[in-house]
Simulated scan of single mutants.
Amino acid sequence: MLVLGPTRELVAQIQRSAERFCKTTQILLETIYGGASKAEQLAGLRKMPAVVVATPGRLIEFLEEEPAPCSLKHVRHMVLDEADRMLGEGFEVQVRQILAEATMPNRQTLLFSATWPPAVKAFASTVLRQPVEVRVGAGDSCFSTNPNVVQDVMFLRDDSEKPSALCALLKGRKNVKAIVFVATKRACQQLERSLRGRVPLVCDALHGDRSQRDREAVLDHFRKGQVQVLLATDVAGRGIDVSNVTLVVNYDCPRSAEDYIHRIGRTGRQGKGVAISILTDREQDAMELIANVIEKAGTRMPPELAKRLGMLTSVGKVDPRMHWKEPWQGLDGNKYQKEDLKSAVESLWT
């Protein structure tokens, strides 16, 4: 069996989960990912493990060596985990190359994805044969979010207020276990320094400039509760599977609906969770992105978000996400539907 994941952290988490079964069945497992010793991984491959969990990049490195230390000709089961993330990070060519190497005729391929955008649909249609499709969540929507996550928005005048707002947010939560997402590695480092001494919590950062050993140590400390606030970039934070995360903060705006869904999916896995996005009035695209996901998922729309979008539309753009109660009775005694009012409002702005 070969399992592919987009990041080192996800591969390590899959390894921990798989080892629970391997211990009692004496199945040999090996992990292959960048940032770790190739010699040790090569030694593990030579033991002919029954299960290999790998990132596409490091596995391709081994396959392209002369002679190649491993072969995929006898892979019976192929698992593509977080396929949307692998495609989003540009691994499609490498994944297709790996699939082409796995030539067993009756190979079973399983593809897992938190979102279902057109790119993933198109990819799946070319690599899966007569697949059975299982959906969990919002029916045909590709914007499926966990209903256990309460989504809210905090609005500020400008970005300079964000550090103080985050401090105030964290100070009010004594037993918090939080992940704070930021846009860049540099911003992650700066925010960590900014929080030191300002909140009564242990904070640490997870980003690509840290060594693999440091990243594993940070995750381990966060998992054990020795770190209460984890600052992470999207790349480093993907696939973090830590139980009892109570709060996710979007300190910087997500770039896409898929990123937003992946971020807030870190909480609400065991009971209720909270996801708060810190925005300014200038970030209209982010407001619309978040509102669109919330509407498609059928969950509660934050009142302040609906209010801000309504204010923005007053300059000539009608908000399609308004929640209408229908039918209602007008002053003239007649019954009206939402389409009646919508048409009337649109006529005022055109």
Score class of each variant (00 low, 15 high):
59 L>Q: 05
42 L>F: 06
137 G>P: 00
202 V>M: 13
287 M>Y: 00
30 E>M: 10
183 A>S: 11
184 T>K: 05
102 A>E: 10
190 Q>Y: 03
5 G>P: 10
300 R>F: 07
254 P>Y: 06
30 E>T: 13
321 R>P: 00
246 T>F: 05
85 R>W: 12
318 V>P: 01
102 A>I: 05
208 G>K: 02
253 C>G: 00
211 S>M: 08
266 R>M: 05
340 D>I: 05
111 L>H: 06
75 V>C: 10
336 Y>H: 13
247 L>F: 07
75 V>P: 02
112 F>W: 14
137 G>Q: 06
274 V>G: 01
348 L>K: 14
144 S>R: 01
129 R>A: 02
68 A>Y: 03
316 G>S: 03
231 L>C: 01
189 Q>T: 14
259 D>Q: 14
211 S>H: 05
174 K>V: 10
89 E>P: 08
179 I>P: 02
318 V>S: 07
203 C>K: 00
83 A>Y: 08
320 P>N: 10
251 Y>C: 03
286 A>H: 02
34 G>I: 06
183 A>P: 03
172 G>T: 01
207 H>Q: 07
233 T>C: 03
127 V>R: 06
307 K>P: 00
240 I>P: 07
130 Q>H: 10
193 R>S: 04
334 N>L: 15
107 R>G: 04
321 R>W: 14
173 R>A: 08
158 D>C: 06
57 G>K: 12
202 V>I: 11
